[in-house]
Write a protein that binds this DNA or RNA. Structure first.
Lengths: 349, 349
DNA sequence: TGTATCCAAGAAAACGTTTTCAGATTTGTA
DNA sequence: TACAAATCTGAAAACGTTTTCTTGGATACA
């Protein structure tokens, strides 16, 4: 069923049908009604492929995330989809599973589908894989990756703000030895979070023991492993900040195994504020980085780049602020973990 | 950059370029090499829209899930995507958020994009919304929705098997009062799970107290509310089976609030075996319904329907078996919760 | 009444492919 | 050497739209 049949039944030309559908004002109201009636009657839906072939606009955006099974990302996808629905765009989503081959493949397929822009929410991986998109001048938006070229936007996350709050919160609770479980340090974002931690510590005069900087991998398993390491330290930290919530959940899991009670024996702070965080046992204190906000920013970045006729010379930069959300996984160091640590220390000396 | 430029540079016709790309065997190897060289050199990628316009095949499948932020679904999406990548298909995903308007919109857009088939993983909602797809004879695959019309497949979940195992496991641990927190009973799948529970109980001669059938909503919040209700029962059940893992996680959450220890005071069984289940505190005993397997079945159902030249007269049916996965959230009733319940009962009598 | 202006609607070109059909060249055979 | 058959390549139509250009009729004005 094509526009031709509609035209035939309505006894008009296909041009008129096209104009009717697109609301071109030169069509007589009377004719328009007649055409619409036929369209409804036949249940005619225009063929997007033909439309975008001639118009040169696919109304498709690509969305590349690291891992859809990581609860952080579905919220992003949902937010992005919400925006797409509102703006009559379609999304091609790819979960890379950290596989460069898969990224390359998905980039290629997106180009073949003629996406109008791509949001890359992988937090700083494998930039070179997107060269194909760049040379084709397809608008891109990254998280935490600069500097910006024309048609490329960047969402810069202000890690410092939230992480500083976390550190100061712990300091106020008398924690002095604070460990940080980072993400994989090849990720720019993981690096940035760790740096924010170190700076925040130094700022208030707390020592950062290099042993207390543990490289994780942003998974629960990573959190489990990291806590195992921490628990065998001669001077055990009384608090741990994690580079993401999944790591923190892993830490909680292992704490339970080892009989370490949170927050009595160990204070714990996560990062991301995934929805799950508030349902943990105990509810997780964490630094919020709004996924919905990221999705909105990313979508709007692409949209405004597409709508612009002359590309922004240096791309645009957007900033997302992070901030601490207090829940129940942190407590006074003095009242438990800290005491225990001191007692332990005294005994070994 | 189009096939024409490739043709011009390679000094052949566009037909030859097309044939080269599609590996048609009549092209001389020598010519083929020449064309390929130009293609590589120019970085030419064919335009899928034009391709599918003429071929009449979009190589797109639709995937409709209830809620991407529910951890059950990302695994399905990932599995579906894996299959799509392997088979060179693209996916249009929609998370309905239980909004009929949104479903209708997404169905329409899928039709406009000329999807070749749609997998509907909403566990039995709003069948009428898909009528548009049916009249257009687009292959569909549902979960737990029959009977099958031509070009419609159904994945039937064998709830009975796993749930019977769960009930018998609890019975073996001396549990007699077992509560069941269902999903919203308008969902066919939720109904089916509850029925499987009741049948399994009756089969081994355990009484099903109607009070112990609590309608939840497949969310954590629902689990929290349900447990609150259960805890005020005069004769508190010693075990709870939930219609999905998210509900069970809510129950765990609320148990923690109320000082009820799992499994000492209450045994808990979930359903789905989402990845998170094993990382709960304690790790959750649950009935596994493999998300990956569902995704594979759904994809293959669509694929074989598309490849078939004459549609299956009554559609196809696939069956997925469920089975119990033992972890640490269940324990002997006699050793704690049961004892306590008895003590409580004795005292009140 | 005649001519210039305007406007709604149709004809046709264009988008980038695949595929059918026809033509040109080579190969095989007598 | 000549002709039939086989093989490879090109020309052109087709897919379903949008959009430019054209046309025919109505309106305005003298």
């Amino acid at each position: 069923m094509s526009i031709h049949e509609v035209a035939r039944k309505a006894k008009v030309s296909i041009a008129t049908v096209s104009r009717t559908i697109n609301g071109v004002s030169t069509v007589t109201p009377q004719l328009s009604r007649r055409v619409w009636r036929v369209i409804e009657e036949m249940g005619y839906y225009p063929n997007t492929q033909a439309r975008s072939l001639v118009s040169g606009r696919s109304r498709i955006f690509g969305l590349i995330v690291s891992e859809i099974t990581n609860p952080f990302f579905p919220e992003i996808i949902q937010g992005f989809e919400d925006m797409a629905v509102q703006n009559n765009y379609e999304i091609l989503t790819t979960s890379t599973v950290h596989d460069p081959r898969r990224i390359a493949l998905s980039v290629r397929r997106m180009i073949e589908r003629r996406v109008e822009g791509v949001a890359i929410v992988t937090f700083g991986m494998e930039e070179a894989l997107f060269d194909d998109l760049k040379t084709r001048k397809i608008p891109l938006v990254f998280i935490d990756v600069g500097p910006a070229l024309p048609r490329m936007s960047n969402i810069r996350i202000d890690y410092q703000h939230g992480i500083r709050q976390a550190v100061q919160h712990l300091a106020a609770l008398c924690h002095e030895r604070i460990a940080f479980i980072s993400g994989p340090l090849i990720l720019k974002s993981a690096m940035a979070r760790q740096r924010a931690f170190i700076e925040s510590m130094e700022e208030i005069g707390l020592a950062v023991d290099p042993n207390c900087l543990i490289e994780g991998d942003h998974t629960m398993e990573g959190g489990i492993k990291a806590l195992k390491k921490i628990l065998v330290f001669p001077r055990r930290p009384s608090a741990v900040i994690c580079s993401n919530d999944m790591t923190a959940i892993g830490v909680m899991r292992q704490s339970y195994e080892e009989g370490v009670q949170i927050p009595r024996d160990l204070s714990l702070v996560g990062f991301d504020d995934i929805r799950l965080a508030q349902f943990m046992i105990p509810p997780l204190t964490t630094v919020k980085m709004s996924q919905t906000e990221i999705a909105r920013m990313a979508f709007n970045a692409l949209l405004s780049e597409v709508q612009r006729d002359i590309p922004s010379p240096n791309g645009s930069e957007y900033v997302l602020r992070t901030s601490l959300v207090l829940r129940d996984s942190t407590a006074m160091a003095c009242s438990g973990g800290r005491m225990k640590a001191l007692a332990l220390k005294a005994r070994t000396e």
